[in-house]
Design a binder for these strands. Structure first.
Length: 989
RNA sequence: GCCAGAGUGGCGGAAUUGGCAGACGCGCCAGAUUCAAAAUCUGGUGACCUUACGGUCGUGGGGGUUCAAGUCCCCCCUCUGGCACCA
């Protein structure tokens, strides 16, 4: 018989805490909290706001409102932040603990497509379902602050932020973003020159340019800009994707569809301007080191030098190159781009190996390839140079034919195919040579796909002796290998491998004999003096591709005039709402060469707009789903504000703290400014380089423009682990419903047939999902909350085991029984004071629980409360003071049960704001402690001694113990180690 | 391949700065209660040897430092996550 049935039949324990009672009182208190607005957190200036309390802003990474609802893995973090929030409220803090929904983007849209309903309808239904599930868990969010990124009143501000970004530029000198109006002022006053750029070839003066030219120069410098660059085109999803959304296998992170590199005109965000600050400010953040490291790696800073090699015109003979080095020596290093048509700029982290650069490699897409490719191969060109790649033409082909074939080959390969081949290098000698600027020797130029157009300059100097990839290529293509770095004596050098570590320069002219760092310095200095190179820093991070060809996203607040130049909408034109459409499906295609076709193009009436009598075309792309998640935490602060994304005072209070002076841009210094930000942000590690990097970038930009008070959004980040669960496969390898699997003698059976057990992330695909609703029905939300926290450390991934839940349920039941008579329902609480022993135990528990709470060690906090509770089971009645303290301690974990007991104890109202118990320090000291006595490291006795006894005293006690005397017999004591309150060790022989 | 994290009873997991390994829970065993069962309560439960007292071994494996190592150092194995020709 189940417990629930038992109560229904009304037997001898009508007042026992069981699933049925749990559900009854959980409903009661959830209604109470809602009715009494228990978890409403007032903003500064609002009724009930107390400026004297410290603030805590505690939040989770908000979820996608998916159609299948939550399983027990999802709320792990939500429960943790709820417990922490409740604890902080009881500590007297103003706690902001909201929850929202990341409802735009591919998952929501694809679910809508599957179900054939408009995404808004399915999204709203899904949000309602999730809200109900979270309410049932007793999560104390402030319901007024529940935002969804799809709300027009929300994305109106996403659009506003986009315009802020669009209307700003990065001032390299001041190292911060500034409004675009200030750029115009700078250009007009002549403090900044337009410069020789793509939009202003020849570097014309501002005064001499017409309006259209000026607009082009401005647009080129915006933090949000349109550019034609190679992007990740995913025809299967009908959209382009950010680098961060493409897996190592060259597939879309969502949907696992093939992704191809295609040059397309798209919106970009200049996140690369913030590389250095995104990197530097990590140091001040209280984040897990692995996440910081992932961001550092993703940003990928490397120090080195840019060096120019001069390509020799294969048609023009060698004389054109004469005097090049001398010319550079007098003209100096050209910053922007090399003045010579055929100069090939490379980036290297090892300028000290320049003397060993025996060839060059350009990416197949490098702009100089066609210009440099020779008409014929010289007869002296070795066979292996003429091309090594699958499907190559005959060796007698011309360089142009070879190059064309190789480009086709490289182009056709998806990244996944590249991986397959891995070991073998491919490439083609293009028949041309270049001059090494330090040796002045001719080196051959190859193209090969191991050089990537997207990194550095798309060209390298190859030093086969000291770079693994160059070594492989050189070996395979039979290019000379010259050693220029000698390994330090004692270092092991593997035969047949490149030596890539630091050493001493050899065969290297003016840097001979220098160790690597000194050699780098000296040669870089020499290059700079001679105008041939310059020390630089390179980053892996690319600008952020910001447009998507989807319906279900924020429309860009951008229109185009007849010139095709983008114009930002005025604030008064916001929000720009998504048009209602019959057909919002993306156009997907198997063909990698298909062109993106945004669904909004089909909204003909919406796509064109007339303003002041002039016709404009709207931007038809939408924003990626990261847009809303980049800043949603700010909207929680003041979700109904129509004037600003959040009131200034409110933002300053919750983000920085109400009392501190604000760190505004003019006083900003990365090293000393307060970081501020959300006090606790809990979520999965999978967002390490996506959401968390984008969000930091937007926040810094808003900070530079003076819209937020802190340079960082999230002060403390915590990654909760995954909930794993057993999954079972049958002999065909297909997953079977885990709930139907039976265990017999350590083996597992489904439908009588043996099945294999494995562990994986809980979810639909592994058929092992357990929903919180079923656990709430079987045990109650309080039991579920407790169990999820008791499973193990919050940061660890741990397996779900329904069988273990009963332990947490029994604890609550036993706790209840300690305070309430199960037959009569009468309190078992007495007004007698607790005896000394119990007092001590209670205060030790309080101290331990507090320490654990502060460090999010909820599993051990629970263990300590269980211990105390177990100590109470033998008592006839529980002293009221002890009972009250325990109820308050358990309240963050099992809030419904605690509220009910609090009420039974004679209090009115909620205990949500009751002070958390404090330990009396005087009760924490023991007067007797047990000390272990070891002889030669083995424990021979345990004795009880007065606490704090010094080493001599301890030794004295220890020597009197009969077991010790026996163990020491016949031995000479050489040394005695005595650690007060811990142990004594006799070293003897 | 590179980087990071982890490996402790049958299971989930405890163990400030090196200082009594296995807290707490599940499971299991025994007892109480019960006509009986469930529930509940009490006790036991790392392995091996021993009738017992007691002893030996034991934190993935191997070596080392130390009076003392789950914890520090070196090598290796396995698992998880991230990156992946980044010049």
């Amino acid at each position: 018989m189940s417990e629930a049935e038992q109560t229904e039949t009304g037997n001898e324990y009508p007042h026992r805490y069981n699933a049925l009672m749990a559900q009854k009182l959980e409903g009661k208190w959830q209604d109470y909290w809602e009715r009494e607005e228990t978890f409403h957190a007032p903003n500064p200036g609002e009724e009930g706001f107390d400026p004297d309390r410290p603030k805590k802003f505690i939040m989770d990474m908000f979820p996608y409102p998916s159609g299948v609802g939550l399983h027990v893995g999802h709320p792990l973090g939500y429960i943790a932040t709820d417990i922490y929030s409740r604890y902080q409220r009881m500590q007297g803090c103003n706690v902001l603990h909201p929850m929202g929904y990341d409802a735009f983007g591919l998952p929501a849209e694809q679910y809508a497509i599957q179900t054939g309903q408009h995404p808004r309808i399915t999204t709203e239904a899904n949000i309602a379902t999730m809200k109900a599930q979270m309410r049932r868990l007793g999560l104390g969010h402030d319901p007024r602050r529940s935002v969804a990124t799809t709300d027009v009143s929300f994305y109106r501000w996403t659009q506003w932020i986009f315009l802020q970004i669009f209307n700003s530029w990065y001032d390299e000198e001041l190292d911060r973003a500034r409004p675009i109006s200030e750029l115009i002022e700078e250009l007009e006053s002549g403090r900044i020159e337009p410069g020789d750029t793509e939009s202003n070839p020849g570097g014309g003066k501002w005064q001499d340019l017409n309006g259209q030219e000026r607009a082009a120069i401005i647009n080129e410098r915006r933090m949000a800009y349109v550019a034609e660059i190679p992007v990740n085109w995913c025809p299967g999803l009908g959209t382009v994707l950010a680098n961060e959304e493409v897996t190592a296998e060259g597939r879309s992170e969502r949907g696992n569809m093939p992704v191809y590199k295609r040059p397309l005109r798209q919106w970009m965000m200049r996140i690369t301007s913030y590389c250095e600050r995104l990197l530097d400010d990590l140091a001040d953040l209280d984040w897990p080191e692995p996440i910081k490291l992932m961001q550092r790696n993703w940003i990928g800073r490397s120090e080195g030098a840019e060096v120019d090699f001069l390509g020799i015109d294969p048609a023009g003979g060698e004389s054109a190159a004469d005097g090049w080095i001398e010319t550079r020596g007098s003209s100096g290093w050209p910053g922007g781009s090399p003045p010579e048509e055929l100069a090939i700029r490379v980036f290297t982290t090892r300028p000290d190996t320049l003397y060993g650069a025996t060839y060059m490699v350009l990416a197949p897409e490098h702009p100089l390839v066609d210009r440099l490719t020779a008409a014929e191969y010289d007869d002296s060109v070795p066979g292996p140079w003429r091309g090594q790649f699958p499907g190559q033409p005959a060796e007698t082909s011309t360089p142009a034919e070879m190059v064309a074939a190789y480009k086709d080959y490289a182009d056709s390969k998806t990244d996944i195919e590249r991986q397959m081949e891995e070991k073998e290098k491919t490439g083609v000698f293009i028949g041309a040579w270049a001059i090494n600027p330090v040796t002045e020797e001719k080196v051959p130029i190859f193209i090969a796909d191991y050089v990537l157009m997207g990194y550095g300059t798309g060209a390298i100097m190859a030093v086969p002796a000291h770079d693994t990839r160059d070594f492989e290529f050189a070996t395979q293509f039979e290019v000379p290998i010259i050693e220029v770095v000698k390994a330090p004596s004692g270092a092991e050098i593997a035969e047949g491998e490149a030596f890539t570590d630091h050493g001493t320069a050899v065969n290297s002219g003016l840097i001979d004999g220098l160790d690597t760092p000194a050699a780098k310095n000296k040669i870089t200095g020499w290059l700079e003096e001679n105008g041939l190179g310059s020390g630089t820093i390179n980053y892996k991070l690319r600008d952020w591709l910001f447009s998507r060809q989807r319906y279900w996203g924020e429309p860009f607040p951008i229109i185009y005039d007849s010139d095709g130049a983008p114009i930002g909408l005025r604030d008064s034109d916001l929000p720009l709402e998504l048009p209602e459409m019959e057909d919002y499906k993306p156009e997907v295609d198997e063909d990698p060469d298909s062109q993106p076709k945004p669904p909004l193009a089909r909204a003909k009436d919406w796509a064109t707009v007339s303003i002041d009598g002039k016709d404009y075309q709207r931007e038809l792309n939408t924003m990626p789903n990261w847009a809303g998640s980049c800043w949603y935490y700010l909207r929680y602060l003041d979700p109904d504000n129509d004037e600003r994304y959040a009131a200034e005072e409110t933002e300053g209070y919750w983000m920085l703290s109400g009392k501190e002076e604000k760190a505004r841009p003019e006083s900003y210094d990365a090293g000393t400014s307060r970081i501020g930000g959300v006090d606790l942000y809990v979520g999965g590690a999978e967002h390490a380089v996506l959401h968390l990097l984008y969000s930091r970038f937007w926040h810094k930009l808003l900070f530079d423009l003076g819209h937020v008070s802190t340079p960082e959004p999230f002060h403390k980040l915590f990654n909760q682990g995954y909930v794993q669960a057993a999954a079972f496969t049958d002999e065909r390898g297909i997953y079977v419903e885990a709930s139907e699997v039976e265990e017999k003698d350590g083996s597992f059976f489904h439908d009588g047939k043996p099945v294999n057990r494995e562990f994986g992330k809980m979810g639909k695909s592994l058929k092992n999902a357990v929903t919180p609703d079923e656990i709430c029905s079987d045990f109650g939300a309080d039991t579920l909350r407790l169990y999820e926290m008791y499973m193990g450390p919050l940061e660890a991934s741990k397996p779900w085991n329904t069988r273990d839940i009963i332990g947490s349920h029994r604890f609550l039941q036993r706790f209840w029984r300690n305070l309430v008579d199960e037959e009569s329902g009468e309190l078992r609480v007495s007004s007698e004071p607790a005896d000394g022993e119990l007092q001590k135990k209670l205060h030790k528990t309080i101290a331990g629980v507090r320490a654990d709470m502060d460090s999010l060690g909820f599993n051990t906090a629970i263990a300590k409360m269980i211990e105390l509770n177990n100590a109470l089971t033998g008592l006839d009645s529980i002293p009221a003071e002890t009972a009250g303290s325990l109820v308050k301690m358990i309240a963050p974990f099992a809030p419904h049960l605690a509220e009910e007991l609090w009420e039974k104890l004679g209090h009115s109202g909620s205990l949500a704001y009751e002070p958390f118990p404090e330990a009396d320090a005087s009760l924490l000291v023991e007067d007797q402690v047990e000390v272990a006595i070891q002889v030669m490291g083995k424990i021979r006795a345990r004795i009880s001694v007065p606490a704090g006894l010094d080493a001599e005293g301890l030794e004295e006690f220890a020597r009197q113990d009969p077991a010790v005397v026996e163990a020491l017999e016949g031995l000479t004591v050489r040394k005695v180690i005595a650690v007060p309150d811990s142990l004594v060790n006799f070293v003897a022989n």
